[in-house]
């Protein structure tokens, strides 16, 4: 181990993580600085296209592919929760404590941060036998803007990636949930929102149980 040098100065020949010459990495920047910065939509579209291509290698079913996209999004959600709460004003920096505030946080803050606008709808499942299901609706998900799913994969919705992010936010705030993306837009000519997507959030039983106790108290 004695041959490992501290990485001061002589970073030129070393492989691995590269440091800028002034020694300031992305971690030295204040977290609030990039708050309003925007990224190129085209670069994201190409990157996401490659991510989908990567995830569709050696898959056995469409569910496999959606699962992989979901897994790619999950860590982003976990980290995003921390970042967005940190950026809130000091007295509202607590994490969401019940389902409604959590879903509102996702619909407004998370969506605004990721896509520049709030989600288009938030609904509770109308089926009384499924009180644990909520729906977040996006009329035209940004990730799907340039994607045409081939006919033989018609069940696929690449917004499974966004579902993964939502799942990460829910898990991070101690509301374990399964989130899936479903296309509900009709493909007819002249349809306003052919890419309309519903994110179905299904909370774990223990969350519902806790929510029940809290409601009574």
């Amino acid at each position: 181990m004695s041959n490992i040098q501290p990485s001061k100065g002589g970073t030129k020949d070393q492989p691995g993580l590269r440091y800028p010459t002034n020694g300031k990495t992305i971690y030295h920047r204040p977290l609030n600085r990039a708050k309003t910065a925007e990224l190129s939509g085209a670069s994201f579209a190409y990157l996401f296209s490659e991510m989908v291509g990567y995830a569709s290698k050696k898959i056995e079913s469409i569910q496999d592919l959606e699962k992989r996209l979901n897994v790619q999004g999950h860590p982003i959600g976990l980290k995003l929760l921390d970042l967005l709460l940190y950026r809130e004003p000091a007295r509202t920096q607590t994490r969401p404590l019940n389902i409604i505030t959590l879903l509102h946080f996702i619909k407004i803050n998370v969506w605004q941060h990721l896509f520049g606008q709030a989600a288009d709808g938030l609904e509770k499942s109308s089926d009384p036998s499924k009180p644990d299901e909520y729906m977040i609706i996006d009329n035209e998900p940004l990730v799907n803007r340039y994607i045409s799913v081939p006919k033989d994969m018609s069940q696929l919705n690449c917004a499974a990636y966004v579902a993964g992010i939502i799942e990460g936010v829910c898990d991070g705030s101690a509301f374990p949930a399964r989130v899936t993306a479903h296309s509900v837009g009709r493909q007819e000519e002249g349809e306003m929102w052919p890419g309309r997507t519903v994110f179905l959030v299904k909370f774990a039983p223990e969350v519902m149980e806790r929510e029940g106790y809290l409601g009574k108290g």
Binding site: A42, A45, S49, E50, V52, Y146, I147, S148, P150, C158
Partner: peptide
């Protein structure tokens, strides 16, 4: 270039 080249399934 938008809807064909950025489509992962093309």
């Amino acid at each position: 270039s938008d809807y064909v080249m950025k489509n992962p399934f093309y």
